[in-house]
Design a binder for these strands. Sequence first.
RNA 1: GGUCCCGUGGUGUAGCCUGGCCAAACACGCGGCCCUGUCAAGGCCGAGAACGCCGGUUCGAAUCCGGUCGGGACCGCCA
Length: 578
Amino acid sequence: MSGYSAPHCGSLRASDEGHRVELYGWVARRRDHGGVTFLDVRDRWGTVQVVVRSQTETFVRNEYVIRVAGKVARRPAGSENPKMATGEVEVVADEVEVISEAKTPPFEIVDEVDADEALRLKYRYLDLRRPKMAQTLELRHRVVQAIHRYMDAHEFIEVETPMLLKGTPEGSRDFIVPSRLHPGEFFALPQSPQQLKQLLMVAGIGRYYQIARCLRDEDLRADRVVEITQLDVEMSFCTEEDVFALIEGLWAKVWKDVLGIEIPTPFPRLDMQESLLKYGTDKPDLRYELEIADVTDTLRETGATVLRGAVDAGGVVRCLAVPGGKDMSRRDLDELVLLAKGAGAKGLAWIPGPLDRHLSEGELTAIRSASGAGADDLVLLVADRRRKAETVMGLLRREIARRRKLIRQGEWKFLWVYPMYMFEEDDLGNLTYGHHPFTSPWPEDMHLLTERPYDVRARAYDCVMNGVEISGGSVRIHDRELQERVFEILGMDRERIHGQFGHLLDAFEYGVPPHGGIAAGIDRLMMAIKDTENIREVVAFPKTQSHQDLMLGAPSPVSPEQLEELHIQVVPPRKTGS
RNA sequence: GGUCCCGUGGUGUAGCCUGGCCAAACACGCGGCCCUGUCAAGGCCGAGAACGCCGGUUCGAAUCCGGUCGGGACCGCCA
């Protein structure tokens, strides 16, 4: 067998005419005409047609692995297939050998699969056989290679950081790994190499990057996987402007090298507050307009009690014009109501609609004008707590854009959301960090740190493209005292600060350069590039929403011996309802 | 932690709202035969599901109800 050096099925072209070749691949399809049979033979590079005459006929079925020896020939005039890259030629076989037989696969290995995703995940090795999936894997490789080239050219060096780290109670839930040699003690798998990369700056590395796996034990969403891959970057003596320039250049290079597209730089910037107001999200998709407007002040004295109630309770009223939306059916609107309620809204109003008679002429005019609604437009209204109203309007905005096909396909809309806020309020009303606790506060806002922490801006930024947050980072704190102060504002006592972050604080006493960086999620980047809303489409072996690997059957129980060795006792979950 | 959607032959769907005419239809795939130029090949013939699982309502359930399992979407969560 000499398959490694053999030409690829998908690479044969007219220029190969006359060459004797040996091909290895999978039978993608067979068309048996009696005296002559056509086999489409597939490998990662594509598919080529093989002509088998009766004298060399061998019994094959779809997905058999075969070896074909034959001659590359131009197809007879008129029988070329312009839909295939190899369509000008065919291989006339004088030998067909079955290397490996195959059962009928549980779903057809074609690009237009409509098989259930769970089935595809169970037989992922078959799913990846589909040309589209193979192309996605290759595209991902191209992206990562472009990143490596770019980072290397800018004198960044890739440094690997450990997988077994110290757990932190902050941030997302850790995956933990029991220590055999230290009974009762555990490692944590990295949520990100954050502290290590900062320590590399203290070490004087200056420019670090890594394509790092990060693991977060959180509930999944359409755009989340448990094991994310991120480009992790940190640099010394930099400002946010340096990071922006670096990353703008990086995306420009990736888009050019991989997609052949020139993207304009620098990217526009939008501060977080404006983003939440106008787009209802911190990651706006600018491929469509649809701006949200605030009409709280107009409705302070309104007779519409549903709106008034929210305003009196300190909430807001936001509105959004749906272009040409007056033609929406009651059913369409009901679906939007369902969406809004599903996101926790108390309700959804629209104009013109049942609410009209409770609103004054002046209020109606003001709402229409604030939302920029034209004569044929419908205006959606949500009244709620500010955060909830933003979330709901953001969802509605996206849904409207999808339904009314307002998203301009083929556009790449990059922007920086910057600055962001240093602190946020969690659902219990407690103060928590917006980005992470190592983020530097905005210098001019330093005096607000103690009295009005929520007004403190952070030197933090997200790079958003087509509604996907593809990277985010910050300029870090490099001063021990300030870092300790931020921890304290976050409600940590001295003991905890030193137990969790003592190494970092100590390091800051030995000469620390100002530094900052960014992390870019490769999975989400790939989603954006492939324009898919399903992150599993860009990951080779993804897990389900409930963290299971349907192919491997993981997670799975381990033997009592293994548990004993690890000093672990399993406590079965309490049965629900008992 | 919560809400919602889905689960019918190998695959995808129809049927389910308005129980009986459904041991269930259609397409693809699969098997056999025919066919020397197709490329979603074609023609003819054929096999294949008691409708995720458990329980209930009913004279009768794929169809109604409850639970459960699996998948997905969303809110929370994701420094």
